[in-house]
């Protein structure tokens, strides 16, 4: 049994094999693996006796359940209407220039992924973004460059 299959089996034993266990299992796999691989989704389906397509259907609904491999740091820029009005475009451009990738892509060193997300609850302090689970608000281009630099130098 592969490592992923083993992990899914343990998760199914922990959360149960009812349909309701699907979400916690998906979240746990993303937490551990950073994304849901084909193998992981197939194995979840097998353990819960549902179709792989059903696992995919659920996973694809949630932007935080990634179905593509992501970098170590996932940057999610808020795309709410307020963020749009407060200069999200500028923020995105700075990020794209600084990381040399476009929205939806991951840097070749697998360090950063750049994504957009729905409102993350900081509408009073837009533009905002999340890096993994940490929010950054009232962003300016300068701030962004510093933040990215900080993350780069962590490694």
């Amino acid at each position: 049994m592969t490592e992923i299959k083993e992990m899914v089996k343990i998760l199914a034993e922990k959360h149960g094999r009812e349909r309701g266990a699907l979400m916690p299992i998906l979240q746990a796999v993303v937490e551990k693996q950073n994304f849901l691989s084909e193998e992981a989704m197939t194995e979840i389906a097998r353990q819960l006796d549902i179709s792989a397509a059903q696992v995919y259907g659920t996973a694809s609904f949630y932007s935080f359940l990634d179905i593509k491999p992501r970098g170590k740091y996932v940057i999610r820029v808020c795309k709410s209407i307020i963020a749009e009005m407060k200069g999200k475009k500028e923020i995105l451009k700075t990020l794209e220039n600084s990381l040399k990738i476009k929205v939806g892509q991951t840097t070749p060193d697998r360090m950063f992924s750049l994504l957009e997300t729905n409102d993350i609850g900081w509408s009073d302090q837009e533009p905002s973004l999340l890096i993994n689970e940490t929010p950054y608000t009232n962003l300016t281009s300068e701030k962004i460059i510093n933040i990215i630099h900080e993350y780069r130098s962590k490694n």
């Binding site: 549902i50 179709s51 792989a52 397509a53 059903q54 696992v55 995919y56 259907g57 694809s60 609904f61």
Partner: peptide, 28 residues
């Protein structure tokens, strides 16, 4: 009880899809 076809994605992107958008030829 096959569920080869499911609802995937959301909002304006919502569509009827297969596992990982594969061809019906390549899925269950």
């Amino acid at each position: 009880s096959v569920s080869a076809l499911v609802v995937a994605h959301k909002g304006e992107h919502m569509k009827i899809s297969t596992f990982l958008e594969k061809s019906l030829f390549d899925v269950v």
